[in-house]
Structures are given as structure tokens and as C-alpha cells.
Design a protein around this nucleic acid. Structure first.
Length: 908
RNA sequence: GCGCGCUUAGCUCAGUGGUAGAGCACAUCCUUCACACGGAUGGGGUCGCAGGUUCGAACCCUGCAGCGCGCACCA
């Protein structure tokens, strides 16, 4: 047995030593290490070059890479690498976010599961030590994953939102805003998470449609026994906190009772009926129980009417009502059923109906939040006008632009931001209370600038130097540190650092539209207030990645593929390219692993094209002149020039998917399918040295530039191939090379260019027609087919060999005197009439028999699928589109048989 | 209720007024000396529906329907 792979002598040229299929893993690791070793990602703040900068949206320090991160960071890497190629000094500043609630919850869970302890068992300091340990052990997982993806961040500038200098910034900003009167403390209705035991901002509450029950009950009038007022509620468990009943002043039945008292059943009390326009006449009974402590609207009504506030819930959501021992201490949802049952026993429950309403859930803990009055710190946003105008005027440009409307709408309806959190992990509020006044200050209705002036409280970055003080226990919302990210990462407080000077404001921000309010809007306001201007010039909002069913990726659904697995399977380049190619501008993307597979296949195609070139060695072949080259070479070079030129415009519009698509099409269609096939004759041993030099020179000229254009999308494989093909000198990196300033065909006269493009395109098209002809007669794979060209264009004779090669044909003759036998298959082509003489190609008789048999089989199939056969059951019937397809194929075969008949007649 | 977006081939999506496209999937052929992670050929779409503008509409306008998202309200 002769194994082909061992018989090297069979090959005219030595086979490349490269493996047949591209294996990305080792290559990617090698190049990432090489880039780091050569400090390729470092941004030089003293550079003369134009600055380009991006700050990374800092992932949660304990987070794990998901596909959203991949898309987001691939785009940033593409922008950064492209900017370097454009000769800019690039800073891509990385870092992580301490993610208050998420991180603390993780550590608390671990503590509970492993040691059965709560954070209070440990105490604040010991607990924080645990969180820091956790951060130090797990914090670099996501950083390593970003490196695996190929991200060209300046790791020497990596930041963490709880770095000492960053923390100083957060405190300083708090102090400044406090002194300005924009930060104050007050007792307000806030969103309370009964699981995380902290207040939340409005943005951290997610409204979910929920199936609830609407209870209708009745309260008896105090001085009209036997007369009742009916009200509807979804929350009977808050009945104990009712302090009034409100009706619309125009209520047909109840309006007359305004001012009278009703009996609250438990704990028994008399509460007034009040009139308020806020009550909807149409809803329920048109009467509303007022529970100021546990409902936002009720709280407002309570304020207006001077009602008491009765709080009957513990912070963890259990009932706090010793006057009702049977409910006291119960969970709010258990108490709900119990309270309803109690009402029923008392004969006060009139009805229960199924009801769908929206319930606010805690974003992190995923439980219904509880509106709760508590003492919190709030911020009145600064620089609202400047920030609104900046986006409206296009000074900060949003892409897609429609998000600007969402932003404007939010900016017009700003509510004060609740910035305090009852957590331990985070930036502690930099406020100290005088110890001797602590108890009164703790419960003071409000605290603001004047209280500091009075010396009762101290607000400062450093702790008070002397005296007895107690520090506020709360920490700040994580986003209160995130909003400083673009400048706090580049400088320390009050310091105009060289990095800040060079790279602020940043050029592009790449993030998801889901954090426009959380982050983007607030960064703009902070930028104007604390860094002297806008924080970035462009914001690119990425797609949200969904599964094929259109669902969001989530851990609980298990529909979120692990990007590391995908990179193991397909390579980081494959993942990046595959994802980029399907991610549309401004719409969600439905992710499917097959797109990553295509990315991997594309890398392989590229690799093999280079492998083919390497059969002729890997010494760089210079292109002596662009004049007088074969037309195919001119066409492929002009296509590359066109591509390079078009990409400039598409990059300017941030249409990343289109860039990937264009890169894909050039390599696969123009370069491999057409040019590389056309050029094979020039690389044979029989070819002239001149032809070979031109082909190799064209290959290297085109491929070296193409690799550069592709590099931002597939950094590893392009760097690898550039080295192997000697497109960069030893020790140089493709990633550091500037884009060429002139097109390949810069010196070629337009007339010569156009003529070559036309001729080459005509040959490719003709080759396609000839292949059609072959395939029609089932000769697609035959190499011994010959063609005759009649009435051909004058330049065709020089191109017949290439045409024959492309058509997979043994020989093509140009013969204007050719008389085709009747029935000879023919086609009209851009270069003349083409004939395919059939003599000797097929045994017409045998072929005819074969086709007849096929037709019989096909007819049977068609009948079966139409359900026309006697024994065909209903289930055998094919769907209509299949029937149509099969009928079409039947017709094709019949046509072929007729043609064969003609041919047979002609040959006799 | 207000606002935004989407609806094109079996699937995922391009397509800004002039002959309907790509990849995948499917069918047939080919393991030919870059690549089967490949090559060749082919089948498949009244462009969500109804009107309007236009010589001409997937594209512009109006209305409707379905799906999705955001905001507000929800006793």
C-alpha cells in the first residue's frame, strides 16, 4: 500500500510543513505573551501622536466572562487596534468594579454555606477582610479571560474602583457635592430590598408583570353601624398600617362620607375617610386604603393630609405588629394569606379575583422590593443642562442615534438619586457625627450643608483630626464610584496627571444600552462637574445577545454558552470574528454557535491560502511593477484597494458587522475562489519565471495588506501569518505597523486598470457558464471536457489556458469556423459562444437508461408525496413545498432526457 | 397609556426608489497535488397585511396586525 502522504516525490513542489488545519490555541497564547513582553499595549502619555482612548466598562471584579462581554470587548479591541494602525497613540484603560451588592452577597453566601455565619457574626472589619480575600483570589479571573480574548488593554494602568486613589476621588466628589448643597440626608420613601437589606435606586428596581390576587373587603362606618365602605387591595397584610381610607371627592356613593370615621378591623382603630383626587374612580370600588409607610402613592397622600405613618414591617419583610400576635413575625407573603383569611372569618372579605399587575423586583436579589421610609443620602444631579445639551447637540454622539431620545427622556425626568446603601462592601460615606449629639443627629429629619457649618457633623476625605466622632455606617451605591470612571482612572484627586492631559476626554465608549441611566448619563454629568467637560465623544451601544428563541442569555435558563468553551473549540479569533459578523447595528443579535464555527473556518481558509503560497517558499516576493501584469492580478489588487478604501468609511460609521462581512467576502470569493484558482497555472513548473514572480509578488502584496486590514478582527492569526510569510521583519509586530498610505495600484493608468478589470471579470463569468454547462450534463467533476469558443473577443486567445483551468476543462479552442453537431450543448458568454462537444464523453445509451430509471423513481416519489398512491397513508404526504421541489426536479430530468435524445440523433 | 424598534429564503440576517442577496441548512456531484473547517452546481422568497405617492416601492407616506424593548401607572 502506498500512502499518498508519504510519497513526497509525487508532488511537484515540496509540501508545506504546516499542519493541514489551523490550530489556534497555541498560536493565540504565544502571540498574546509576545505582545505583552514587547509592551505593545502600553500607552505613552508623552507621545506626540494624536491620542485615542477608551475606558473599559469595568466588569464586576468577581464576574465571569459572558458573550455580552465578548462582543463589547471585541469591539473595543477592534477600535483600539485599528486606531494604532492609523498612527494614533492608543490608551485602552482596563479595570474592574467592586460591585457592592453582588460581591457582598457572594461572600455572605459562602460564609453562610461553609461556616454557617452571617456578616454580623464576623463584624465589619473581619467581614471586609474576607471580601478583600475573595477579591484577591477571584478578581483576576475575568481579567485573564479578557486576555485570552486578545484584548490589547494597557494592563500597567489597570484600575479597581476601590483602589486608594480611586476611593479618594469618590470621597472628594461626595464632599464637594455636599458642600454645594446637592447631597443631603433625609427620611424618604425608598425602594427597600428585604433580602439584601439595603435601599436601592429606582434604576435597580425591575418591574415585572405578576399574577396577583385582588382582594375586596369592607370597613364598617363608626357612626353608621351596618353601613360599609368597600375597598380593593392586593396587600391585605399591610392593613395594620392603614391610617385612612381615601375616596375620590366625586365618588357617587362614598363622597358624602368624607370626614367620617371607619373601623379598622385589626388592630382595631378608628381611621378617617378622606377625599383625594389621586384616587381613580374607575378602579375597583373607587376607594383606597392609605398605608403611608408601605406605599409610595399613599405616602404622598399621607403627607398632604398630615396622616400618621405606621410601620408594620421589619426590614427583612416580616410583619412587625405586636398588637396582632397571630400575624406578628410572619413573612409578608404568609401574612397576606393569613390576613385575608382573618378578614373572611370576620365576614369582611367580599371577594378575591385573579389580577395581573406590575411588581417591582430587586435587580440583584430578584424578590419584590418593599417601599419603605428610611433615612438615606440623596443627590440632586449636577450639570443637568450641560449634559442634556451635549447629547442633543451631537457634541456627544450616540450610535445608534435613537438612544439619544431615551437619554433625553430620562434627563428630563430626573429624580434625586438615593446613593446610600446599607452594606459594608463599598465606599463608606465620608460623614462623621459628633459623638455627644449622635442620637439626635441619627434621627434628624434632614442633614445638609448648614449642619456641617454648625459643627455637628464633619464631612471630609480624611477623618476628623480631633474630637469624638462616629462615622456614618452606610456605603455608597456602586454607581456612585462608576460615574467617575473616565477621569478617576487617569488621575488622583486634584491632580492634572499627564495621562489625563493626554487622553481625556476619551474618544469612544462601548457599552450596552441597558446601562444608559445607570452609567452613561451619570458619567456625562460627572464629567462636566468634575473633569471640566464631556467624558467621551462617541458612545457605541452594542447589541444585546439573545438565544435562537430570542430569550436573553441567563444562567438560570442555561442558554448562555461559556465563551471559554467556545474559544477552546474555535479559537479566540474565530469567536471574535464569528460574533462580529452577525452582530447588527442597533438590534439584538440571536446567537448561534454555528457563527463561531464559521469564524473558525474562516481562519482556516486564510491559513490554508498562505500554506499554498508557502509551497513556493516564504521569502517575500516584491512586486516589481504594476504595469503589464496579468489582468487577474490587476483585478484582485484593485478589489483590495477598494476594500481598504471602503473600510475607512465603514469604520467611521461604526458598522462592525459590515466590515467583517466585507473582509470575509474579499478573502473567500475574490482572493481564493477566483484569483488563487486563476493563478495556479502561473505557479506550475512549466510556467515562466516571470509569470511566477508576478503571481508570487501579487500574492504577497495583497496578502500582506489584507492581513493588516483583518488584524483588528483576528489579531492572533494575522500576526502569526505575517511572521511566517515574512511580511514583517524579525522582531517587528503587525499590530504596530501603520496602514499603507498609498493604494497598491496607485501608479496604474485608469484605462489600463479598467480594461484589465473588465477582461478578468469576463473570464470569471465565462468560467462559471462553462461549469454550469458541465454540471447540467452531469460532467461537473470530469476533467476531460473540451470546449470550443466561436466568435470570441480578440484578446481571448491569451486567456484560454486560464479559462480552461477555471472551468475544469482539458482544453479550450477558439475556432470561428467550428460547426457544432446538432444537439451540442452551448452557452452564450461575455467572450463569445461556447460549445461543449460530447463525442467520447459519455455513453449516450447508458446515460439514457440511467436517466430513465431516475425519472421512474422520481415519478413514484412525486406521487407518493402527493398522496396519490393507493397504499399511501396520510402521513406519507410531504409538505407542499417538498412536492413542488420534487416536481421541479422531475421536470429537469425530463428535459435532460429530451436533450440526450437529440444528441443521440445528431451523433448517428 | 407614552415612546422606540423589528417583521425579507427552513434558520440567522444584509439590502435608503430601478432585474430580490449572503452565510448556514437542503439536494446532486467531487476526497483533483492550499483548505472536506473544502470545491462545483442547483432548488427555494406574491420582502407581515391594506391603502397611498411614483413611470417604477422590500425601500417613501398613512393605517392595521404580530413580536420585542424602555418609561409611567396599577388599590
Amino acid at each position: 500500500m502506498l500512502d499518498k502522504s508519504q510519497s513526497v516525490h509525487e508532488h511537484p513542489r515540496p509540501m508545506s510543513e504546516l499542519a493541514k488545519a489551523y490550530e489556534p490555541q497555541a498560536v493565540e497564547e504565544k502571540w498574546y505573551a509576545a505582545w505583552l513582553a514587547a509592551d505593545c499595549f502600553h500607552a505613552d502619555e508623552s507621545s506626540e501622536k494624536e491620542a485615542y482612548s477608551i475606558v473599559i466598562p469595568p466588569p464586576n471584579v468577581t464576574g465571569i466572562l459572558h458573550l455580552g462581554h465578548v462582543l463589547n470587548n471585541a469591539i473595543q479591541d477592534i477600535l483600539a487596534r485599528r486606531a494604532r494602525q492609523e498612527g494614533k497613540e492608543v490608551l485602552w484603560l482596563p479595570g474592574t468594579d467592586h460591585a457592592g451588592i453582588a460581591t457582598q452577597a457572594k461572600v455572605e453566601r459562602e460564609l453562610r454555606e461553609k461556616e454557617g455565619k452571617t456578616r454580623r457574626d464576623l463584624g465589619r472589619d473581619a467581614f471586609l477582610e474576607r471580601v478583600w480575600d475573595f477579591k484577591n483570589t477571584h478578581g483576576d479571573i475575568i481579567i485573564k479571560q479578557l486576555k485570552r480574548l486578545g484584548c490589547s488593554c494597557d494592563w500597567s494602568r489597570e484600575r479597581f474602583t476601590m483602589d486608594p486613589q480611586y476611593t479618594r476621588w469618590v470621597s472628594q466628589v461626595f464632599v464637594d457635592l455636599f458642600n454645594e448643597g446637592l447631597i443631603y440626608r433625609g427620611k424618604r420613601m425608598v425602594n427597600w430590598c428585604p433580602v439584601s437589606l439595603t435601599a436601592l435606586s429606582d434604576e435597580e428596581v425591575i418591574m415585572k408583570p405578576s399574577r396577583s390576587k385582588l382582594f375586596t373587603m369592607k370597613y364598617e362606618l363608626a357612626d353608621h353601624p351596618g353601613e360599609f365602605i368597600e375597598i380593593s387591595t392586593t396587600r391585605p397584610e399591610t392593613l395594620m398600617a392603614d391610617v385612612a381610607i381615601a375616596v375620590h371627592p366625586k365618588h357617587p356613593k362614598y363622597a358624602k362620607w368624607i370626614g367620617k370615621m371607619v373601623k379598622r378591623p385589626f388592630p382595631e382603630a378608628l381611621i378617617p375617610i378622606i377625599g383625594d383626587e389621586a384616587v381613580d374612580l374607575e378602579f375597583g370600588t373607587g376607594a383606597l386604603k392609605i398605608t403611608p409607610a408601605h406605599d409610595k402613592v399613599d405616602f404622598e397622600i399621607g403627607l398632604k393630609h398630615g396622616l400618621d405613618i405606621v410601620d408594620t414591617l421589619h426590614p427583612d419583610g416580616r410583619i412587625n405588629c405586636p398588637a396582632c400576635p397571630d400575624l406578628d413575625g410572619l413573612d409578608r407573603f404568609v401574612a397576606r394569606r393569613k390576613a385575608a383569611a382573618k378578614l373572611e372569618e370576620m365576614g369582611l372579605l367580599i371577594g378575591v379575583e385573579e389580577y395581573e399587575n406590575n411588581v417591582g423586583y430587586s435587580e440583584r436579589a430578584d424578590v419584590p422590593i418593599e417601599p419603605r421610609i428610611s433615612m438615606q443620602w440623596f443627590l440632586r444631579y449636577p450639570k443637568i443642562k450641560e449634559s442634556t445639551d451635549a447629547v442633543a447637540s451631537g457634541e456627544i454622539r450616540f450610535r445608534p442615534e435613537r438612544w439619544a431620545k431615551t437619554y433625553a427622556h430620562w434627563m428630563e425626568n430626573l429624580q434625586d438619586w438615593c446613593i446610600s446603601r446599607q452594606l459594608w462592601w463599598g465606599h463608606q460615606i465620608p460623614v462623621w457625627y459628633r459623638k455627644d449629639k449622635f442620637d439626635s443627629l441619627k434621627n434628624a429629619e434632614s442633614l445638609e450643608t448648614k449642619d456641617a457649618a454648625a459643627g455637628d457633623i464633619y464631612v471630609g476625605v480624611e477623618p476628623p483630626a480631633q474630637g469624638d466622632w462616629i462615622r456614618d455606617e452606610d456605603v455608597m451605591d456602586t454607581w456612585f464610584s462608576s460615574w467617575l470612571w473616565p477621569f478617576a482612572t487617569m488621575s488622583d484627586v486634584g491632580e492634572n496627571s499627564a495621562t489625563l492631559k493626554k487622553f481625556y476626554p476619551t474618544t469612544d465608549l462601548v457599552t450596552g444600552p441597558d446601562i444608559i441611566f445607570f452609567w452613561v448619563a451619570r458619567m456625562i454629568m460627572a464629567g462636566y462637574r468634575f473633569a471640566g467637560g464631556l467624558p467621551f465623544k462617541n458612545v457605541y451601544f452594542t447589541s444585546i445577545i439573545r438565544d435562537l428563541k430570542g430569550r436573553k442569555m441567563s444562567k438560570s435558563l442555561g442558554n448562555s454558552p461559556d465563551p471559554i468553551d467556545l474559544m477552546d473549540k474555535f479559537g479566540a479569533d474565530g469567536l471574535r470574528f464569528g460574533l462580529m459578523r452577525i452582530a447588527p447595528v442597533g438590534a439584538d443579535v440571536r446567537f448561534d454557535e454555528s457563527s463561531v464555527e464559521e469564524g473558525r473556518n474562516f481562519a482556516n481558509k486564510l491559513y490554508n491560502a498562505c500554506r499554498f503560497r508557502q509551497m513556493d517558499g516564504n521569502e517575500f516576493a516584491p512586486l516589481p511593477s504594476v504595469h503589464g501584469l496579468p489582468v487577474y492580478h490587476v483585478l484582485v489588487m484593485s478589489k483590495l484597494d477598494q476594500l481598504a478604501n471602503d473600510l475607512v468609511g465603514i469604520y467611521a460609521e461604526y458598522r462592525f458587522g459590515e466590515i467583517a462581512q466585507r473582509l470575509y467576502e474579499f478573502l473567500w470569493n475574490d482572493f481564493c475562489d477566483k484569483w488563487l484558482e486563476a493563478v495556479k497555472a502561473d505557479l506550475r513548473e512549466s510556467a515562466t519565471a516571470e509569470a511566477r514572480a508576478a503571481a508570487l509578488g501579487t500574492f504577497d502584496a495583497v496578502m500582506s495588506r489584507y492581513l493588516q486590514l483583518l488584524h483588528p478582527y483576528m489579531p492572533h492569526v494575522t500576526e502569526e501569518l505575517s511572521e511566517r510569510m515574512n511580511y514583517v521583519s524579525a522582531g517587528e509586530f503587525l499590530m504596530k505597523k501603520s496602514l499603507p498610505d498609498k493604494p497598491l495600484l496607485a501608479g496604474l493608468p485608469a484605462a489600463e486598470l479598467e480594461a484589465a478589470q473588465k477582461q478578468a471579470a469576463a473570464i470569471y463569468e465565462t468560467a462559471g457558464r462553462l461549469r454550469n454547462l458541465k454540471a447540467e450534463y452531469n460532467l461537473g467533476s470530469r476533467k476531460d471536457v473540451r470546449f470550443v469558443m466561436k466568435g470570441s473577443v480578440d484578446w481571448l486567445s491569451n486567456e484560454l489556458n486560464v479559462l480552461a483551468l477555471l472551468a475544469g476543462s482539458a482544453e479550450i479552442l477558439a475556432d470561428d469556423a467550428y460547426e457544432a453537431p446538432k444537439g451540442t450543448p452551448a452557452a452564450v458568454t461575455p467572450v463569445g459562444e461556447a460549445y461543449m462537444p460530447m463525442e467520447g464523453l459519455i455513453d449516450v445509451g447508458a446515460e439514457r437508461t440511467r436517466i430513465s430509471k431516475e425519472i421512474e423513481k422520481m415519478e413514484l416519489e412525486v406521487k407518493k408525496s402527493e398522496g396519490k398512491l393507493g397504499n399511501a397513508s396520510f402521513v406519507d404526504r410531504a409538505p407542499p413545498e417538498v412536492v413542488v421541489q420534487e416536481k421541479q426536479r422531475l421536470e429537469d430530468w425530463k428535459t435532460k432526457l429530451t436533450q440526450l435524445g437529440e444528441m443521440l440523433a445528431a451523433l448517428k
